[in-house]
Design a binder for these strands. Sequence first.
DNA 1: GAAACCTTCGAAAGCGCTTACATTGATAGG
DNA 2: CCTATCAATGTAAGCGCTTTCGAAGGTTTC
Lengths: 362, 362
Amino acid sequence: MEQRTGTGARRAVTLGDVAERAGVSPATVSRVLSGRYTVPEATRAKVEKAVRALDYVANVHARVLAGASSRTVAVLISDVTSPFYNLIVDGIEQQAAGEGRMCIVCTTQNNPERERAMLALLREQNAEIVVLVGGIDRDDAEYRKRIGRLAASLDAAGARLVLVARPSPGPDVPATVVEYDAVGGALAIVSHLLSMGHRRVLFLGGTPGSTTTSARVEGYRKALAGFGVADDPELVVHGRSTRAFGHKTMGRLVDEGRLDFTAVFACDDLVAAGAMAALRERGIDVPAQISVAGFDDIAQSVDLTPKLTTVHVPLNELGRTAVQRALHRDDDTADEQHVVLGTHVVVRESVRPRFAEGHGGK
Amino acid sequence: MEQRTGTGARRAVTLGDVAERAGVSPATVSRVLSGRYTVPEATRAKVEKAVRALDYVANVHARVLAGASSRTVAVLISDVTSPFYNLIVDGIEQQAAGEGRMCIVCTTQNNPERERAMLALLREQNAEIVVLVGGIDRDDAEYRKRIGRLAASLDAAGARLVLVARPSPGPDVPATVVEYDAVGGALAIVSHLLSMGHRRVLFLGGTPGSTTTSARVEGYRKALAGFGVADDPELVVHGRSTRAFGHKTMGRLVDEGRLDFTAVFACDDLVAAGAMAALRERGIDVPAQISVAGFDDIAQSVDLTPKLTTVHVPLNELGRTAVQRALHRDDDTADEQHVVLGTHVVVRESVRPRFAEGHGGK
DNA sequence: GAAACCTTCGAAAGCGCTTACATTGATAGG
DNA sequence: CCTATCAATGTAAGCGCTTTCGAAGGTTTC
């Protein structure tokens, strides 16, 4: 517990208090606590008893200042509310906890200004590793320079930059990168759509230019090319990756009579959910009239009606792997500092062959 | 950026480096940075220039150790993945960010052992406020004692304990408590069910004994009493608050022929989602044959089929209010340290009058 | 029984910062 | 012109810890 001086001023129990109570020096207490020294059983017992009696907890700030590791993993995401980020963070936290690390999770709310401020804060925190999660809006030279600088500065401070679900900024940047195969996933699911006879496939959602979107569009185009289908720019409609966007935009498309597609590849499951809701409201049956496919395989996609056919992304594993690789980058067992995890199509109910039940698109 | 000495040892830029470069003393740099002193414009400019030139960021640990505030909000939840917690954390982060605070989010993974360890870690962190989110498994004397001790110890260290969506441990405990009206919400929605003619209402899910469950059960019982309906213990089936539990248990109930209810009040929306899926798989129509109501109003409840009738809980506001009250507890404007936010029924499609379409329950 | 060694543990420096106190030079008052 | 006053800034202590260094005492070796 804490002690109060007569004036009401307050201070926490310090290592010195423990030392005094145990009848040893502060140095000995520190040694017992660190656990990395051989301390005779008798001494250790005395110290541990005093620690318990005083309910002592060390002051991290002092500990870090004196040179110990902060044993902290800092995570920066744009939005706590998104299931995509959640699942990644969950993986990060599980692994971090398993390795005895704390997690600091911060959000940028999609505000570049805030991202910058947060990064500064995280640098101050002396985190062991700093994890940046999720795609970025533009992968340009300026961004690469910034990230390179950040990586170098963390590296210089003995910390490690980790990029999860975000492309590598280059091989010479000292960072751990853990991505998933977005192009492959998009290629696979759009091929699935095409193999079911669909020829006009709407690509819906995804901030234009963002790395996440680009990869998914690339897979989409590759699939079209593979099937010899022309790529109609009219069929790519970008926007924010939210349920609201999917809902609003699909509604507008239908209302404007632009229903010249028989399948939709939504940039992610949330957009797919919105789009399906909009179609249902207008009496258009999924999948009988229109097939819908998503991306990410978030938990709720099995609760959509029909159950969503989508691309499974190993989100939890992404998080776990990132922390594991970053922490053990000296071990020869976990040496790889750029890993790409595989994705795969999960076939459920929202995709059906074109004209399967006598309905056609349009 | 950082500097390297010849040996490859590394150190970050310190305040002293800035001072040297600016040609002033460390104290002056500190004064400029803190912003709470009148420093002549010329000096301030010199210092700021040096700060920028060296890309200096202060070391929080040193800063805190020397007595400054950590400006940190620590949050403890059991699971990042749950939409209920997410939305609360989102609110906490928004408010914290608005007030210039960092957030540290930790999870206990529902492990009491881990919760204890985390609490110790958080105490070490010298957070300004420590927020505990969500109900607890048993509100007994032992728990109250523990929380009382924690509150006192934080208070003694100048920090504040905040309880969100968790009942108050007593009026004399120095803590900020922000709850929602769970009993009222449950009362309202079960009354809604009863007013639709349902008489046998299954209560599904919720860890038995947990404060969250207890409050919801209490509202359920009150509603029954209000309508003069006997409370059949057979109709209360507890379990974990997950989709999986709702799915499995509802499936089992149906398969065992225990379908002697016409409505279900699920302890939360996730359980409702699972239950609805199980019913659908067995060809039982919701809401024609069975009505289902949930609790929490998480985002995905509008994407269930039928759209879920549920109780809206102001999760985001819960988070924001908590931080705001805890931080401004001296202001007379925000003085209230125990607030209960209201809940309300959101009527959607999953509840229908009993026998509405010629179907009966059972 | 002296030399060599090991074990145990205390003294003290120092991590990077804030701040109470000291110092300086300028301005004002008598 | 000397001193009181004040603004500007430097000096130095100390926050609570880790860790190097060395002292003290015990054990082994020949």
